[in-house]
Amino acid sequence: MPDAASKTIAVVGTGTVGASWAALFLACGHDVAATDPAPDAETRLRAFVERARPQLAALGHTGDGALRFVADVEQAVATADFVQENAPEDENLKRGLLARIDAAAPPHAIVAASTSALLRSRIVAECHTPRRHIVAHPFNPPHLLPLVEILGEDDDVVARACAFYRSLGRHPIVLRKETPGHIANRLTAALYREAVSLVEQGVASVADIDAALCQGPGLRWAIMGPHLTYHLGGGAGGIRGYLDHLGPSQERRWASLGTPRLTEDVKAAIAAGVEDETKGASMAELEAWRDRLLVDILRLKQSG
């Protein structure tokens, strides 16, 4: 099981999430055996790792693990201490892939599946040793954002996985029961539902709805979550004082929240609004801007 010493990590699937994981593992001094069936996957992976290297160095991750790209899943996991699976969000695909990994990986290896909404109980259904399989859902890009949502059936496996992710500078949280979307995606889905509803109702432009979040509560949310935020909002009475005094106003707002549908008109309005907001910037330019600011925020939090 990986610790501070260099170990071999298998990265199965090297798209956006898998490449980001690989960059982090390498920068923390672990060796990586990666595999992905897509054309030019190795070239894209190595290019991503090189782009991520200075970002990770700025955050104190200056290790230099060895990267090798192999042809198939069995070869990638054959000597792995830890497996990070990042295949597309397709239940049948993941179920079969995890069964292959389970059959080929060493007995001591933990297998961590990245899924944003699939249920662990379903994707490990064909594995002979499901107890060593966990869901480890990151927030994109995982080489920068610390959150990893963990769900497993064996407390020891979960504890070992959490210790490993903490050694990478990640912040693992443990789910006590499975639910579609885990925690973070359910929270963001609730927020996005209301953002879409505001567009649907014509309350404000897409740019102003985005600004209302990132120029206001989003700044606080980089420091504390909703419960602690409202705890401070309760003044001397804390969270109990807030709930007793302002809880009814929360319930009135909940009752007024929208239930929008993504009709063609709504999708067109959102797309036009985003196009206006981004002012012609390319995806690469937007990603670089996002990642540069994320590094600045993370460095500030490290010093706090």
Rank of each mutant, 00 (worst) to 15 (best):
S167C: 08
A117S: 12
V295K: 15
Q201M: 02
G304M: 15
V77Q: 00
G258H: 14
T35P: 06
T278M: 10
H171P: 00
Y230H: 14
D265G: 02
T8Y: 02
A4C: 09
A22I: 11
E149T: 11
K301A: 10
L219H: 11
V295A: 13
R220S: 08
A222M: 04
A80T: 01
D276K: 13
G233W: 08
A80R: 00
G216R: 11
A189Y: 13
A189R: 14
A109P: 03
T8C: 06
Q302P: 03
G304S: 13
A163Y: 01
W289M: 15
L45M: 11
A195K: 04
D36G: 14
A19R: 06
R292Y: 11
A190L: 05
A212N: 13
L198I: 02
L56V: 05
R122F: 01
Y230E: 08
R186D: 01
H245Y: 07
Q75C: 06
R253Y: 11
V49M: 07
R290T: 14
K301S: 08
G216D: 07
A189E: 12
E275V: 04
G60D: 03
R132C: 08
E50Y: 06
I123K: 02
P107V: 14
V12Y: 07
I239V: 14
Y242N: 04
P217E: 14
A104K: 03
G235N: 08
R186V: 02
Q55C: 03
N92F: 02
C214Q: 15
A87N: 05
A99E: 08
H245K: 10
Q302V: 04
D156A: 10
A190Y: 04
I134D: 04
T278S: 10
R166N: 07
E149V: 09
I110V: 09
A105F: 02
T259S: 05
S249T: 05
Y165L: 07
L145Y: 15
T79W: 00
A284H: 14
A38Y: 13
E194K: 03
V158Y: 01
G235S: 10
E285W: 06
V12T: 13
G13S: 05
T259A: 01
L243H: 08
A109W: 02
E275F: 00
Q75L: 13
Y192S: 01
A87K: 05
L257H: 11
E74R: 06
A10H: 03
R176T: 12
H171R: 11
A23D: 01
A204N: 09
T263D: 11
G273C: 01
V295W: 13
D296I: 12
R100H: 01
A10D: 06
V157W: 02
